[in-house]
């Protein structure tokens, strides 16, 4: 019983750290060129999944459990991909 509770606590506490980051990006009009965004974020260990939406100009980043990507890192990666960050929102 104690073991079960311990496992549940560990699971919930790790899940609490998994997060979703939504980045609004300007200049993202070409899907070919924006492939760089996906490539750059996919190289980051903390990133589980990256989705780019050209309609909303948003990049959705899902981080791995217990890991995070800093605002500075987000800004740098978007800049390296050739774009500008408008806003960063975390859930």
């Amino acid at each position: 019983m104690k073991k079960t509770i311990l496992i549940m606590l560990c699971t919930f506490s790790l899940s609490a750290f998994a997060g979703e980051i939504t980045v609004k990006v300007s200049g993202m009009v070409c899907s070919l060129c924006a492939q760089g965004i996906k490539k750059k974020y996919s190289e980051i260990e903390a990133v589980k999944e990256v989705k780019v939406n050209l309609d909303t100009k948003l990049v959705h980043i899902q981080t791995k459990d217990g890991m995070d990507v800093s605002d500075t890192q987000i800004n740098n990666l978007i800049k390296e991909a050739g774009y500008n960050v408008v806003s960063i929102e975390r859930k």
Binding site: S26, G27, M28, V29, C30, C33, K57, G82, Y83
Partner: peptide
């Protein structure tokens, strides 16, 4: 060299 770039909402 990329001399200049303008990233706007709907254009580059």
């Amino acid at each position: 060299h990329l001399l200049w770039r303008r990233n706007a909402d709907d254009s580059q």
